[in-house]
Simulated scan of single mutants.
Amino acid sequence: MSQWVTATVVEHKSWHADLFSLRVQAPSFDFTAGQFVRLGLEDAEGQRIQRAYSLVNAPHESTLDFVITRVPDGLLSPKLQQLQAGDNLQLSQTASGFFTIEQVPDGDSLWLLSTGTGVGPFLSMLHTQAPWQRFSQIKLVHAVRTEADLCYREAFLALQEKHGKQFHYQPVVSREPVKGALSGRIPALIDSGELEHACQGTLNLNAQVMICGNPEMIKDARHSLSAKGLEKNLKRKPGNVTVEQYWK
Rank of each mutant, 00 (worst) to 15 (best):
T32P: 05
G239K: 08
S174V: 00
R134T: 10
R185V: 01
K232P: 00
V209C: 14
L89M: 04
W247P: 01
H163P: 09
K237T: 13
I49T: 00
L205M: 07
I211N: 03
G184V: 03
E216L: 08
F167M: 07
S96N: 12
T8Q: 12
T146K: 09
Q133N: 11
Q129M: 09
P105H: 07
L75M: 04
F98A: 13
P177V: 02
L189K: 02
G34M: 04
L189R: 02
S183N: 12
V178Q: 03
E194Y: 10
A33S: 06
H163N: 07
W111H: 11
L230M: 15
P105C: 06
E161M: 09
A188G: 06
R236F: 10
G118C: 00
P78A: 04
L159C: 09
M210A: 08
Q166D: 09
A198P: 00
A158Q: 12
V9I: 14
W4A: 06
L157S: 09
G118W: 03
F29N: 00
N233F: 11
L55M: 14
R134Y: 08
P78K: 06
Q81T: 02
V178A: 03
V173G: 01
F122H: 01
P72S: 11
M1T: 11
D106Y: 13
Q84K: 07
P59R: 01
Q35H: 12
V241G: 07
R23S: 15
K139G: 08
E196A: 13
V10P: 12
H197D: 14
L140G: 03
T242V: 08
Q200G: 13
A44V: 08
Q50T: 11
V141H: 05
Q208P: 14
A181R: 03
R222K: 14
G97W: 05
Q129L: 12
L91E: 02
A148M: 02
K13S: 06
Q47V: 13
A85W: 14
Q166I: 05
A143H: 00
T100L: 05
D87R: 05
Q93K: 13
G239R: 09
H223D: 09
G229T: 07
S174E: 01
L205N: 15
G46E: 03
S28T: 12
P131E: 04
F156G: 05
Q50G: 01
W111V: 08
S96I: 04
G164H: 15
P131G: 06
I218Q: 15
S28I: 10
P27V: 08
M217N: 00
W111C: 10
A148H: 06
Y246D: 12
E244N: 14
Q170I: 03
S96E: 15
S124E: 09
R185T: 02
S224R: 13
Q137M: 01
Q25C: 07
L113P: 02
F156S: 05
S92Q: 10
H223Q: 11
V56E: 08
A17V: 07
K235M: 14
K165I: 03
R222M: 14
E42C: 06
A44I: 07
Q133A: 07
I68K: 01
L39C: 02
S136H: 10
S77R: 07
V104R: 05
G164F: 14
K237L: 12
H142V: 01
Q160P: 15
I68M: 03
L195V: 13
